[in-house]
């Protein structure tokens, strides 16, 4: 059932920004920083979503997922590889034997401008190919037009089509204009059956931001307090440095707490973040600032 959207908290942008500024000014000890970076690495959905993707590119990405940087000992692999449905089979094959998940975008990603029928077929195709996780997009046009029931039903239908696959619902916050809209869309997605809510496709600017993620984390928190069920969070797009990743983790810890601090409940949708984290980890081990030239491209 679609939740009551009339009694939601209202967000004051200035207030949210003040709160975010606090998260960003926490000082973190170097030893904790290393642990934080490893945690962030283990939460990455290594992503390639380009028209020019090929099977070789996907194979290379999968290799990177399993072997982030072989000269570094004791580092985790990433959480998942995220590709278009056409490459799910290839990714599944390349990742065989590891516990890395394959996530696939679906439902006429990134715009979502197609019929429900096509979206469901798209989803089923990805699941049949072996996807463990589905990243769907909501119909932003319908949402902004106030057609919340439509958005809710669509998510619920896709959830059903997913079967056992986890469903991440992309709100595309860059198109939702206000934090109040973000909160509303989060509620709809969560009540319609999302396992994760995700900020962005990465194809629209602004993509993930700390304020937007903060609002979504609050929606997750309120839902948890009400029902005891834990929903995951995935900021995606524009998170390219270790420093920003750590700021997200600080916020996650302070809003939702330790239970969410693992890859089952938090993911980063990113690609260049991986190498930045690896460079920081090598720096902390050797004391020498690193160059991207000595890290494999994904």
């Amino acid at each position: 059932m679609i939740p009551n959207l009339n009694n939601l908290p209202v967000y004051d942008t200035t207030g949210v920004n003040e709160r975010i500024a606090r998260f960003c000014s926490r000082s973190i000890k170097s030893s904790s920083k290393v642990e934080g970076l490893k945690l962030a690495l283990s939460m990455i959905d290594l992503t390639t979503l380009e028209g020019k993707d090929t099977t070789r590119k996907v194979q290379q990405l999968c290799y990177k997922a399993m072997h982030p940087h072989d000269t570094l000992k004791n580092i985790p692999t990433v959480a998942a590889v995220c590709v278009y449905p056409a490459f799910v089979k290839e990714a599944k094959k390349a990742l065989h034997g590891s516990d890395i998940q394959v996530a696939s975008v679906a439902t006429a990603f990134p715009s979502g401008q197609s019929s429900l029928e096509v979206k469901l077929l798209d989803t089923k195709f990805a699941v049949d190919q072996g996807a463990d996780e589905i990243d769907m997009v909501i119909s932003r046009g319908e949402f902004l037009a106030g057609n919340y029931q439509y958005v809710f039903d669509e998510i619920a239908a896709v959830k059903e089509a997913c079967g056992k696959a986890h469903l991440k619902v992309i709100l595309e916050t860059g198109e939702l204009d206000t934090l109040d809209n973000v909160r509303k869309a989060s509620e709809i997605a969560i009540y319609a059956g999302a396992d994760f809510i995700k900020t962005s496709t990465g194809k629209i600017q602004p993509a993930a931001t700390l304020p937007v993620t903060y609002v979504m984390l609050n929606a997750i928190k309120d839902y948890y307090l009400k029902t005891g069920k834990m929903i995951g969070m995935k900021p995606a797009g524009g998170i390219s440095t270790s420093k920003i990743a750590l700021q997200y983790l600080v916020m996650l810890n302070e809003v939702l707490g330790e239970k969410w601090m693992n890859k089952n409940y938090f993911r980063f949708g990113a690609s260049s973040l991986t190498n930045d984290i690896l460079m920081q980890l090598v720096k902390s081990e050797t004391g020498i600032y690193q160059s991207i030239n000595y890290f494999s491209k994904d």
């Binding site: 020498i288 600032y289 160059s291 000595y294």
Partner: peptide, 8 residues
């Protein structure tokens, strides 16, 4: 020291 060792 850092100027001489920085890999970039």
């Amino acid at each position: 020291g850092q100027m001489a060792s920085h890999m970039d």
